[in-house]
C-alpha cells in the first residue's frame, strides 16, 4: 500500500510525521520510506543510515546529430515551445523540454535523436528493517517532476505488497502531483492557521481531481483558530488527529531525532494513522 504525506503549505510537518511513522511501522511490517521532496530532501536527517547506493537519474533531451534542413517539423511538434528550428540547426531549451520525444519522432532527416541528460540521483539505503529511497535533484536543475516519478517508481517496484510511505514535495505543482498520483491514501498535513487552511484547500482540490482517498492531520494544533477543523468537517474529510505544538517534538526535530518515544500526543496520532491504514487495507471502499 502506498501512503503519501502531502500538504499545500510547506513546513507543516510532512517529514516529521512520515519519518516517525516509518520508524514505528517498520517494526511491524516491511516498510519503505520514499523521500520524494527531491528539491530539498531531508528525511535522511532523521532516518540516519550509513552506507548508501547511488544511482544517477536522467531524462532524454533532443540532440542534433545529423544534417538539419531547417524544415521546422520539430518546432511544430513541440507543445512546449522547447525547440526552435533555425536555418540549418535547432535550438533546444532543456528547461522547457518535457522529454516526450515528439521532435525526434517527426524529424524527416532523423537528424534529431534522444540522448540521456542527468538531472539527479536516487539514493538507496537501509536502516534496520526500514528501506529508504530518496531523490536528490542536482543543483541548478529546474525540473523536479521526472525525478519524483523515478523515485516513487524505484520505491514501489518489486515492493508492491509492502508498505510504502512517500514524503511529498509541498504545493500542488506537477512534482507534488507525481508524489501522490499512485497513493492508496494521502495524509494531508496542515496547521490551523489561515495560511494552512488556504493551502489545505488547494491540496484537497488536487487530490480530488486525481481521485485519491484523503485524510488529514492537524499539526501545531494549539496555535491559530478553528477554521481548519470546520473546513475538514464540512468537506467530510476524516481528521485522524492533532499534534500539539510541543517542546519535546520541536527539540527532537531540531536535533535530527525521532520523537515517537518523547511525545505521547504524537504517538497517539501515529497510532490513529496506523489504524486507518489497516482499515484501508481491509476495505478498499472506505471513504
Amino acid at each position: 500500500m502506498i501512503v503519501s504525506f502531502a500538504s499545500g503549505k510547506g513546513g507543516t510537518g510532512k517529514t516529521m510525521l512520515a519519518t516517525n511513522l516509518a520508524a514505528v511501522l517498520s517494526a511491524r511490517l516491511t516498510t519503505t520510506y520514499v523521500d520524494a521532496d527531491v528539491e530539498e530532501p531531508n528525511g535522511h536527517l532523521f532516518l540516519r543510515h550509513d552506507e548508501a547506493r547511488l544511482e544517477r537519474a536522467a531524462v532524454s533531451l533532443p540532440k542534433l546529430e545529423g544534417v538539419c534542413t531547417g524544415c521546422g517539423a520539430c518546432q511544430k511538434a513541440c507543445a512546449f515551445h522547447a525547440i526552435l528550428a533555425l536555418k540549418d540547426r535547432v535550438m533546444a531549451f532543456p528547461e522547457l523540454c518535457h522529454s516526450c520525444g515528439a521532435c525526434c519522432m517527426v524529424c524527416p532527416e532523423q537528424a534529431l535523436v534522444e540522448r540521456p541528460f542527468e538531472i539527479g540521483s536516487l539514493v538507496h539505503a537501509r536502516l534496520g528493517a526500514l528501506r529508504l529511497v530518496s531523490g536528490r535533484l542536482d543543483v541548478g536543475q529546474a525540473r523536479a517532476t521526472p525525478l519524483v516519478e523515478a523515485v516513487v517508481r524505484a520505491g514501489v517496484r518489486g515492493h508492491e505488497d509492502e508498505m510504502i510511505l512517500v514524503d511529498s514535495p509541498p504545493g500542488t505543482s506537477c512534482a507534488a502531483m507525481a508524489a501522490v498520483r499512485h497513493a492508496d491514501l494521502v495524509v494531508l498535513v496542515t496547521e490551523p492557521t489561515p495560511f494552512g487552511l488556504n493551502d489545505l484547500r488547494l491540496a484537497v482540490e488536487m487530490c480530488r481531481a486525481m481521485e485519491r482517498r484523503i485524510v488529514a492531520v492537524v499539526n501545531r494544533a494549539d496555535l491559530g483558530d478553528g477554521e481548519v477543523l470546520h473546513y475538514l468537517e464540512r468537506e467530510g474529510i476524516p481528521m485522524l488527529g492533532q499534534v500539539p505544538f510541543e517542546r519535546s517534538i520541536a527539540t527532537a526535530y531540531a536535533r535530527g531525532e525521532l520523537a515517537t518515544t518523547r511525545s505521547g500526543a504524537l504517538r497517539a496520532v501515529l497510532d490513529a494513522i496506523l489504524a486507518h491504514i489497516e482499515l484501508v487495507a481491509l476495505d478498499g471502499s472506505l471513504p
Binding site: F80, H81, A82
Partner: peptide, 18 residues
C-alpha cells in the same frame, strides 16, 4: 497565442517573429 502559456511564452513568441 503564447500569451497564456504556462511556460515557453518567450520561445513561442520568438518563433512567431521568425
Amino acid at each position: 497565442s503564447a500569451v497564456l502559456a504556462s511556460h515557453g511564452a518567450g520561445t513561442g513568441a520568438a518563433s512567431l517573429m521568425q
